[in-house]
Amino acid sequence: MHNPQLAANGQLTHLLTLEGLPAPVITHILDSATPFVSFGERDVKKVPLLRGKAVFNLFFENSTRTRTTFEIAAKRLSADVINLNIGASSTAKGESVLDTIDNLTAMDADIFVVRHSESGAAHLIASHLNATGRSHVHVVNAGDGRHQHPTQGLLDLYTIRHYKKAFTALSVAVVGDVLHSRVARSLISGLTTLGTPDVRVVGPQTLIPTAVESLGVRVCHDMREGVAGCDVVVMLRLQNERMKGALLPSTGEYFQYYGLTPDKLALAKPDAIVMHPGPMNRGVEIDSAVADGARAVILPQVTFGIAVRMAVMSLIAGNG
């Protein structure tokens, strides 16, 4: 099937998933983000790339942090930003997602940033726009269900490349609630596309999806084995709000087995970095001594996240 996020000439026109996105496209996005990282050095922290464009933040599911980072990114590109908390408005009145999109397109939207609890929502909207001759309107997936969160995956890739330079000799451990994590799925897609030879997913059996090995990763149920000798440790948030049924005995027991503590981190390489997509649960998946320690790059991830989102929006808006 034609990849709906790429135009006929292979240029990125929507960002829906890192799955199946070619390595040169991913690398181009990461390269494009670099000039935006040093934005803090400017007197004027704004550039006119999206001047006169309207970016609609469509959050069918709440996320203050992701919405804020997209809003900052769009505003620094001089776009007009409209935040819609759809969960509390039209959908509650019975309007379908695509009717909402048609209405907002009639208000001359240029970019939709979409967060939805259902997997495939952004994909559905992009396909609808493409099929109705409105491919000049772009869609960025800001998280769909358990499926993908591509800008988070890209900022994770940017962070890893910033500290480790190349992917082709790296060992990366992704630890925790992989089952519910679209962050993990996006990162794993990107890592394997860019040629990372050793990607491990680490967690209890109940939080690791079945057949995850088909993504090209190794499964470890023992955390010590999982982080041993790795260059990058990516800790995932324990997603309490997504837990259905008794997947875990207690958060205290989870911390004992899978929480990242200084003694477990000591098993990784001496220069290993620690990442976390936020928000962190201290004392559940990560010890404060690690979260605030010298190896943590969790706050640089936030800074890089704005730059990556600026690059993505600039690229797709510039591609037609």
């Binding site: 494009s32 000039p35 040093s38 690059a311 600039s314 690229l315 510039g318």
Partner: peptide, 13 residues
């Protein structure tokens, strides 16, 4: 920019 897209990737001022 509108017709040619983002150029000069990777070089910062």
């Amino acid at each position: 920019y509108g017709s040619a897209g983002l150029k000069g990737a990777g070089r910062a001022t």
